[in-house]
Design a protein around this nucleic acid. Structure first.
Lengths: 252, 252
DNA sequence: GGTTGAAAGTGGTAAGACCACCAGGTTGGC
DNA sequence: GCCAACCTGGTGGTCTTACCACTTTCAACC
């Protein structure tokens, strides 16, 4: 069905035809980011299709992030962004079991590569930002909501220090889940001094390795960071169930 | 009084409202993959929106891969797949310079994590498949087209042996570019025995590490594989330019 | 009994009308 | 003369209606 456009005849449906026109013009650079498109009325006239059909295509492209349609102003070509990927993953993950664990693997993949690149490419600004995030992390230990956000910001800063668009894009795509997961974990593990200390130190080690610019070391420490987090989460879950069991026994 | 509609922020435009309804119903499992949706007329009645608007939403979801709309039959909930990601990347990469290098970083990220998981999770079947791909790789050394495809298949087999959906999804998303890149590289580096030997051995090492089930080793060897490939490509480019320069001098 | 073709239901498309929003020019008051 | 409020034209946002094209079904016909 991917080949449907290759058909010789005019038999493809109008939607495909119009979509291809847009694809062509954007990919050929005829329509560049920031350009304003003709009005829907004009376009529907030019392409010889009705406005509803044209709008179906444009809406789809809007969802793809290729167009930015603004009520009362017009439609603009946008720089494709990750918005659509978030939507896609939301639907996608709703249909997958073990989705969070699964996505966590993608997250590890992205961050581990990003941290390597960051060691080479990070500017002073990037370093400073990561440091700021780290301080913020320490300042919000008590609040699961803010702490989770700070945690997420720290990791995000690392990924953006890689200056690699595709990694950043993919990371953003799963960011909604990551943020949620960070907050959840905070709520579970809140309160244990030992946990907090390990957590902070783990972040610090990663940060220092980046400052040193040692890609291998940074990668290794980040992996340790993830496995520590994983272990802590398991412990917490076990603890939670144990408490529950005891409470259950106590009620008898 | 016009503001009466503005409450709870639920007052956004109809498109958003309808989209959220679909999102809810799919995410809540009310509509599961394979289910057939009510007809457009029924839905537009139920949701109290016009059919064109409803269709805009459904088309968008069709593009996202969430719905499968079939003329004359109806709309079905589909398992979200990576088709949309390819479209997205096509637009996205058209706007980015250095796109290929950039995406290559994402590729490395995905494969390096995948190979670790593969070491733990690969079944006998997976191993056999990777081995088959490796043999195919050796059998097609002469043909850039087939050789490039075999190369791609080898790496794909590794990723799929990770049994990690999100990694596989992301990998598929960039697969079109990877395949193209594999073939291109083959065309450039074709002919040098030394290059071919290094290339084959590099793959072999990765394969063996997976068979051993040693994640760290496999990861390291895969990284070496990539850096070898990178180096070879650079050398070839330099060689090509050198030849060109000599030829240019010769013509004078 | 097998074939065929109409009918019903579905998505596909078009046209026209009207509403909501935005920007820029016009008009009114100060 | 200046500024605010208002009007106006253009744009996207939405609804309605009608009709076309594809698929399936089932009953009439051979």
């Amino acid at each position: 069905m991917l080949d449907s456009a290759i058909r010789e005849g005019e038999s493809v449906n109008g939607y495909q035809r119009v979509f291809e026109v847009f694809r062509e013009r954007v990919l050929n650079g005829e329509w560049r980011p920031g350009d304003r498109l003709p009005s829907e009325r004009e376009l529907s006239l030019e392409l010889k299709v009705g406005r509803p059909l044209l709008r179906e295509v444009m809406r789809s492209l809007d969802m793809l992030g290729v167009l930015d349609i603004r009520h009362g102003k017009g439609a603009y070509v946008a720089k494709a962004d990750f918005k659509v990927l978030s939507d896609f993953f939301a639907f996608y993950l709703a249909q997958e079991k073990n989705a969070l664990d699964d996505v966590m693997q993608a997250r590890i993949a992205i961050e581990c590569q990003a941290v390597r690149l960051a060691c080479d490419r990070a500017t002073d600004n990037d370093i400073a930002r990561i440091e700021t995030c780290f301080k913020q992390l320490m300042a919000t230990l008590e609040d699961p909501e803010q702490g989770g956000r700070a945690d997420y910001q720290f990791h995000l800063a690392i990924v953006e220090a890689s200056h690699c668009q595709s990694l950043m894009t993919l990371y953003h795509a799963i960011s909604a889940l990551l943020l949620k997961s960070h907050v959840q974990r905070r709520q579970i593990t809140l309160g244990s001094d030992e946990v907090i200390e390990a957590h902070i130190d783990s972040h610090r080690q990663v940060f220092l390795a980046i400052v040193e610019g040692d890609g291998d070391k940074a990668n290794q420490r980040l992996r340790e960071h993830f496995s520590i987090g994983d272990e802590l989460r398991r412990k917490s879950i076990i603890a939670a169930y144990t408490q529950e069991a005891e409470a259950s026994l106590g009620r008898r």
